[in-house]
Simulated scan of single mutants.
Amino acid sequence: MNDQPYLVPALPTQFEEEIKKSLFITYLARTPSIEAAKAFVEEVKTKHSDARHNCWGFVAGRPEDSMKWGFSDDGEPSGTAGKPILAQLSGSGVGEITAVVTRYSGGIKLGTGGLVKAYGGGVQQALKTLQTIEKKITTNLLLELDYGFMPIVQSLYPQFGAVEVSAEYSELVKMVVEIEVRQVSNFSQTIINKSGAKVNITALD
């Protein structure tokens, strides 16, 4: 499992341009799964059901996870739309993103080179205006401890960016803490050191 954070879209964005009387509208949105990506494609297709082409590409997970990539030329000549769209997305370093480019044809042929440039260029321009946020890879830990160790554990939250999700109080305190995967080892080791190994730590995910 790759525990490094990566960028994802913060907000949807779009870019519009006219090329030789054809109107190209590029939509970008965050889609955390292949299902979400396909749903977004369908949403745009429904919105522009009168358009001749709604071509698309998606990177539905980590930017480098090609198992979650997809694209379609949607009736344009093979390789002129979906691949250039995906090339821009996969090269952007942004994950969980889908691009749909709607084309209203103006009757003038663009040729294969012109189409590649139009579809890829629209996504490139849209990416320039895209706001992104960092997605941290987190996991949940169950901590079982005596009441006396609670202040020690809670004092470590800010240092490791941990967040207490829930706490159950019986003979022992059972706390569920969300923390970045890459911080788990140091966080756990620090707790063990400070508690004399008296806090039981279990990974839940």
Rank of each mutant, 00 (worst) to 15 (best):
R52T: 11
E42Q: 15
S195C: 09
K20P: 04
I133N: 12
E178D: 07
K68F: 14
N193S: 14
V184L: 01
F71Q: 13
E164K: 08
R62M: 13
P32E: 02
Y119D: 00
Q4D: 09
E178V: 11
K194N: 06
L7D: 05
E43M: 15
T138C: 15
V116R: 15
I97T: 01
G122H: 07
K47G: 03
H53S: 02
S78L: 13
K47A: 10
S72G: 07
I152G: 02
D3I: 15
A10V: 05
S195T: 15
T129W: 06
E134Y: 13
E17S: 14
P63D: 00
Q14C: 10
V44D: 01
V41P: 00
V101Y: 02
V181A: 12
A10R: 14
G196F: 12
A37C: 05
Q88S: 08
E134R: 14
I191Q: 04
T190K: 15
I152E: 00
V177Q: 00
G111Y: 15
P151L: 04
F15V: 04
V165K: 12
P5K: 02
S155C: 03
N140D: 12
K198L: 10
A118D: 03
T13L: 03
A118F: 08
P158W: 06
T102F: 02
E76A: 06
T139S: 13
F149D: 06
R103L: 00
E168R: 02
I133S: 14
K136V: 13
V123Q: 03
L142M: 09
G121F: 08
K109G: 02
I108C: 00
S195Q: 06
L156G: 04
G75A: 05
A39C: 11
P158H: 09
T98G: 06
H48N: 13
F15K: 08
V184G: 01
